[in-house]
């Protein structure tokens, strides 16, 4: 049984998710720095500029008072709020809650720099939107949180997974699959690094439209493989994977750069976030391969319509996202 037959499930996962859900994994960042007794500098970065407005805000503990200037700073990808936080008895033992986080698909990184040099770092998620401060996170804990963020970013980034699925539908054999996935990995690692280190950046709306276009591009190529035809993409899918991988890398970077990481920790965060992305990606590919093997063992035979459903899912969703994101891009440009 051909691989594409057995990728039905992956397309079901993609279909079960929502088009507007794709690529909305933009983390927030809350940084607190102890500047004096019971006094902290406060910096809140809320991601913005994506397809859906994220309504999240930190809730200050009861015994604390925040003084902020009247104006918020607006950047192309985030709203920044800075201020001075004073807390009776300090922040130890007090709970920071991110209101609205449970209604999103994003994460918030909370970092507390103590005056004695200790660093506390927590990754808040929709299912755990609060944290009680006081402990100090070790380097290992911080490293794990970056890896976790990378894994979540790819697993919840349905468009990235759909692109990988489309590549898997085109490749002819396992060796070509290894080459193609490696090319995609190398390419997105390059642009992820470039964007995270600040050498280049891509505006979010055109980027998302281009990523959608890369998925749509694979649709007709999949149909060509069904018909037994050939093309440059079918002969050399790794080249296409590399080219579009460069785009997807900028998309991954948006998940990391929106945090506004401290400069000293960027190399570590970049490396581990990328490791997390690769773990998620390899896990997805292995899951599909293992499913193929299982279906073969269980001698499952699919109707032709079901067999082709994954290919149609890639093409249809790619087309839908391209149209949707182009309209948003044009609306944003006006």
């Amino acid at each position: 049984m051909r691989l594409r037959v057995l990728l039905l499930l992956a397309s079901l996962v993609a279909a079960g998710s929502t088009p507007v859900l794709a690529h909305e994994v933009r983390p927030g960042f809350l940084e607190l720095r102890e500047t004096g007794p019971e006094t902290y500098s406060f910096s809140w970065k809320k991601p913005t500029g994506g397809e859906v407005e994220i309504q999240i805000a930190p809730v200050i503990p009861k015994d604390c008072q925040l003084v902020t200037p009247d104006k918020q700073q607006l950047t192309p990808s985030a709203i920044l709020v800075a201020g001075i936080l004073t807390c009776k008895g300090g922040l130890a033992g007090k709970t920071i809650f991110i209101a609205g986080l449970d209604g999103t698909i994003t994460d918030v990184l909370v970092r507390l720099h103590h005056s004695d040099g200790r660093l506390e770092s927590h990754l808040l998620r929709p299912d755990a939107p609060s944290v009680t401060l006081g402990g100090v996170t070790t380097l290992l804990e911080r490293a794990l949180s970056y890896v976790q963020l990378g894994v979540l970013h790819i697993l919840l980034g349905v468009d990235h997974l759909l692109f990988v699925l489309g590549l898997m539908l085109i490749v002819a054999d396992r060796w070509m699959l290894v080459k193609t996935i490696t090319a995609f990995t190398v390419a997105h690692s390059i642009t992820l690094a470039i964007a995270t280190l600040g050498y280049a950046s891509a505006p979010l709306l055109p980027l998302n439209a281009a990523i959608a276009l890369s998925i749509l591009f694979l649709g007709p190529e999949i149909v060509r493989t069904w018909r037994g035809e050939t093309s440059f993409t079918i002969r050399h899918p790794w080249v296409v994977a590399f080219a579009f991988g460069l785009l997807h890398g900028f998309g991954f970077a948006s998940g990391l750069t929106a945090m506004g990481l401290p400069k000293a920790e960027i190399p570590l965060a970049l490396l581990l976030f990328n490791v997390g992305v690769e773990i998620g990606q390899v896990g997805f590919v292995l899951l599909i391969i293992q499913l193929e093997r299982s279906f073969r063992t269980l001698q499952v035979s699919w109707p032709r319509l079901v067999e082709r459903m994954p290919g149609y899912a890639v093409g249809t969703l790619g087309a839908y996202w391209t149209i949707q994101r182009t309209i948003m891009l044009l609306a944003g440009a006006r």
């Binding site: 998710s17 929502t18 859900l21 859906v52 209604g103 999103t104």
Partner: peptide
């Protein structure tokens, strides 16, 4: 099957969907 519906649009506001 894949066209977005009102229910799918709702996913964005419900965590992971």
């Amino acid at each position: 099957l894949l066209l977005p519906t009102a229910a799918q649009a709702h996913l964005v506001n419900t965590g992971l969907g």
